[in-house]
Amino acid sequence: MSQPRGWKELPIGAVPFRLSTDYKTGDWRALRPVVDMNKCVKCMLCWIFCPDMAIIWDGEKILVNYDYCKGCGICAHECPVKAIDMVPEPSE
């Protein structure tokens, strides 16, 4: 991330100039959801309940956008067929 801008470069009225999609909250995560598409019944409840809009339905399968997923575990808890596991983040 570059230097914060000086006042002359900011829009007036203090309106934010970037979308929060530029801000990756994925590094808040201790546990990561992993979807087993063999078990998944594509009910979309994980997509519906994800508070971070991190579950993606690509038309065939459930993907997790790890850029944003904070690892709360709601998806795993709500999955009616237990197709989502919360696994520890790999520590590199």
Partner: peptide, 27 residues
Amino acid sequence: PLMLNPARPLSFGPLDLYDYYFEHKMH
């Protein structure tokens, strides 16, 4: 346009911390 405009959404009245508040006061 600096307004609540469904054609070009902007957010008015954000949280502004010590990293930008002072700059906004300069405005």
